[in-house]
Design a binder for these strands. Structure first.
Lengths: 218, 218
DNA sequence: TAGATTGTTAATCGATTAACAATC
DNA sequence: TAGATTGTTAATCGATTAACAATC
């Protein structure tokens, strides 16, 4: 029951989205095979993953969608609101603040910080941009758990350190550079640009566009 | 030399960012151990990964940063510009269009599409928002390779199908729902929200915040 | 009952780590 | 030369897949 492997956790987040969808369509039962089909997985993987949860399926029917949704929510912590702040009020930071999905998923953006003093006081979605000097105070006072780093790559590490010293427990790094997990905070990278490069590699691997480097060896 | 595992490709993108950084600082040599330290890896992993590349290090010195950078660029296709379009001119789509990092990394945003006719004609960073009806034509004419999906989750699959039928070879899915790879296009998910849930799980696993569900079993 | 689907164990597959000879 | 670092092989570790008895 304890300590799921990361790949399992990542798939659970997919199951949750899918199950929420079909719940809305009033589908009551779902089998491991249906989940697998919908998410391009195998039913074996799905059953293996779900075995980490406090849920039992029923032969010939599968899993009750409502229960599955509830259990997944609880396991992923999606049933509680978590307080987060965004550092960096550039395009990315703003998009995050404006992106309604966070709120819907239980992530409450409590504040936005930026080092550009011209921006201080401006409001985004009702959330005021504050100065970096106030970060520590606000994070402490409002019991912020998560900091999202949306600053230029070169500032990422110092912002991470500041957030952790202010008491944040988890960091979402939207930068493309590596952030060393200071203290015992956890860091997860979003890696949008790395994802694009990964995509490019997969595309070329598939039908060998480009490069044309014929593995000269011997 | 062919077909690297995905985890290796993902790390190569990190190496590239790091090596570009230290190149700018005029550092000429870097050892597997230094790379490992900087990116929270082991030197063994780094050497294993670099063995997939057409590069040789030198005992006692390591790898020449300039060469390493060049080889990584080539391997990841980061040395050529790739044409991409964004579908969805909401907050996320706009942030992507405005995010200079794409351009700097060789991803040229050629067009933005949206189904909201009120937005057609508006310009973002000099790129005009076009109607969905023009997608096929523009993708074909401008030889677009990559489509970024920044629409509501419910529309993701149909947008994906449209992009693929227009000739796109790769899809970056910014939605939180699963996109089935149509045709032989490749899909990579960014999963920002899933990343947040993963982060939350890791945070709780670390110092057991929340849940408090004591694995009742037997 | 017959057939479908779970839950779980065992087998396979793949990735990471360790170790060490080669080499600069 | 001595010591550091590569490149690579082998060992370990972990995740996915296959298989199948249990069960509804």
């Amino acid at each position: 029951m304890k300590k799921m492997p990361i790949p399992v956790v990542q798939r659970l987040t997919k199951y949750l989205v899918y199950v929420q969808d079909i719940c809305k369509e009033d589908i009551v039962w779902v089998s491991s095979n249906e989940i697998a089909q919908a998410l391009s997985l195998t039913s074996s993987t799905v059953r293996q993953d779900l075995s980490h949860l406090e849920i039992s399926g029923i032969s010939k029917r599968g899993y009750e969608t409502a229960i599955l949704q509830r259990v997944l929510c609880r396991e992923l912590g999606a049933d509680k609101t978590v307080n987060a702040v965004i550092v960096g009020a550039g395009n990315l930071g703003r998009a995050l603040a404006l992106h309604g999905e966070f709120g819907r998923r239980g992530f409450g953006i409590c504040a936005i910080f930026d080092s550009n003093t011209d921006l201080i006081g401006e409001k985004i979605e009702g959330i005021e941009i504050s100065s970096m000097e106030k970060l520590k105070e606000i994070v402490k006072k409002r019991k912020i758990d998560i900091g999202m780093i949306a600053v230029p790559a070169s500032a990422a590490q110092s912002v991470a350190d500041l957030l952790v010293s202010a008491g944040v427990k988890g960091l979402l790094n939207l930068t493309l550079s590596h952030v060393c997990p200071a203290g015992n905070a956890v860091v997860v990278d979003t890696r949008i640009i790395a994802n694009l490069q990964e995509l490019l590699y997969l595309m070329r691997a598939k039908d060998s566009i480009g490069s044309g480097v014929s593995a000269r060896k011997t």
